[in-house]
Write a protein that binds this DNA or RNA. Structure first.
Length: 112
DNA sequence: ATTGTGACCAAAC
DNA sequence: CGTTTGGCCACAA
């Protein structure tokens, strides 16, 4: 069952991230209507059931570093590489791959 | 109720 | 590069 307010919006926003792009936790939280709740996004994503097929690997820290440690980090890195995102060491080039949703698309998705 | 922790963020050294 | 500080909120002890 849901754990916190806004989880559905968070899932929705993450599901909108296109292949080949990445978004930060803070950005996802902001678009989900939860400004400043980046930490909430992280906590929610870690409990995300794989059955939702959510592109959680496209969500990274604000500077592009992969947040998770251990085996899952390799999975995330590989998934990003497979989508054409260049991952150097343990971080991606945010300048180039950061998801930049248009305000128009954002309002359309969130209102409908 | 309080404290410590965490897949975080940003500013400030 | 690195650490500290303050903020955020859910959760476990």
């Amino acid at each position: 069952m849901p754990q916190c307010a806004g989880h559905q919006q968070i899932y929705h926003v993450v599901s909108l991230i296109p292949s080949g792009c990445v978004a930060s936790y803070g950005q996802v939280a902001d678009l989900a209507g939860l400004p400043g709740r980046a930490r909430l996004v992280g906590r929610l994503l870690k409990t995300t059931p794989s059955s939702l097929s959510l592109p959680w690997h496209r969500v990274v820290k604000s500077d592009g570093r992969i947040a998770v440690d251990g085996n899952s980090a390799v999975t995330q890195k590989d998934a990003l590489l497979a989508e054409g995102v260049v991952v150097t060491g343990n971080k991606v080039n945010m300048q180039r791959f950061r998801w930049q949703p248009s305000l128009h698309l954002m309002l359309h998705e969130l209102s409908g």
